[in-house]
């Protein structure tokens, strides 16, 4: 199955892929318990790195909450993208969600070419 045809969902969250433009959309609140519960997402992100789309978007504009284990999963993905070297990554963020201001800027420290695209109204 292509990476964009998959979906992960649970209580309070949904993550799905779209092929054009290639993007992964996060909705709701992600507060899973440790790296074990995040393993399906970690595996999915690993599949995207292996597929190496030239442009990739993480769309978190509707992700209201992410715990530190989830921040770890996104950071790991960004480091893998940096190591791969041929994927241009954009993170679409929401100016109205406080955790995104606080935490997503760290992703740019891991990958300076990453675009953080904050929208003001969504």
């Amino acid at each position: 199955m292509n990476w964009w045809e998959q979906e992960l969902s649970g209580v309070g969250y949904r993550i799905y892929g779209e092929p054009e433009p290639p993007r992964l959309v996060f909705e709701g609140s992600l507060r899973l318990n440790g790296m074990a519960e995040y393993q399906p997402l970690t595996d999915w992100l690993g599949q995207i790195v292996a597929a190496a789309p030239p442009q990739m978007i993480l769309d978190v504009r509707s992700l209201k909450f992410l715990n530190s284990s989830g921040i770890n999963v996104l950071s790991r993905f960004v480091i893998q993208v940096r190591q791969k070297g041929n994927i241009h990554l954009t993170v679409r963020c929401n100016d109205g969600i406080p955790w995104q201001h606080k935490s997503l800027v760290n992703l740019q420290r891991l990958l300076p070419t990453l675009d953080l695209d904050f929208c003001h109204e969504f």
Partner: peptide, 25 residues
Amino acid sequence: LQKLEANAVEDDPGSGLGYLTILND
């Protein structure tokens, strides 16, 4: 940042980021 880099290559069951995000972010 050191912890994020280390976590990218290690399969630790915990991220160890809770206190660090509170301090840093």
